[in-house]
Amino acid sequence: MMGVISDAGKVVIFFFRILGVWKRKSISSQLMFEQIWKVTMQSALTTGMAGFFVGAIMTIQFTMQMKDFGALGYLGGLATSTTIREVGPLLIAFMLAGKVGAFTSAELGTMRVTEQIDAIRCLGADPIQELVLPRFIAIVISSFFLLGLGLLLSIFGGILLGEVFSGVSFEEYLRHIPTIVSLPSILTGLFKCFIFAVVLAVICTYRGYTTTGGAKGVGLAVVKTAVGTMVTIVIADWVTSLLADITLRAVLGT
């Protein structure tokens, strides 16, 4: 238990170190755009596919619940609202954790054990500024692009299954989306997406940056990233759900 608390503390300190470097030093826009492109493209296909099937699953699940009440007209609105508010951000975070998180910690870990990070310091540069910060920002920004892509495809998947499985037409599926998908749902989704991306970015960069012990150490860093991000994201989901609900009720009076 003490180990977990100590690790969590080190991750928080590392997060503030990243923020400190961001505040004090400039960041190469070329490096950052390269990373945003890389992260987005690395995960676009899997996120899109997962989004499509989540939409399809939501449609099937809601159909089974709602058809007895004769409320299938609300199918599109409910499935989309749930995806935006809860499943979408969580799905994107898990996808990113599996692909980008593992990749980033392995990449930084390899750079650490092959002394490339020390070499950067010896050559007069700050590895946090050169390596960590561009990856950190890229993961956060890309997660919003991927959320958008995942949502679009989930609506598409929902429409398709709505037609085939539930007998709900294209127009009917879309009709209640604007009425059910409220501003609080969208804001909650965006807030969660941001928090999960920050959690993922800081854990995977920390694990990679602090890797020790050769190839075995890199493997261990990847495993710790995968486990750490999944667990922390689930906990963060609970906390953000609670916070978002309280905040939005207070601000919007909903």
């Binding site: 092959t114 002394e115 490339q116 020390d118 070499a119 950067i120 010896c122 050559l123 007069g124």
Partner: peptide, 14 residues
């Protein structure tokens, strides 16, 4: 670090 240059055990090239 400008005065002292370290050549690492591994090439440590980027």
């Amino acid at each position: 670090r400008r005065k002292c240059g370290l050549v690492f055990q591994q090439p440590a090239l980027f």
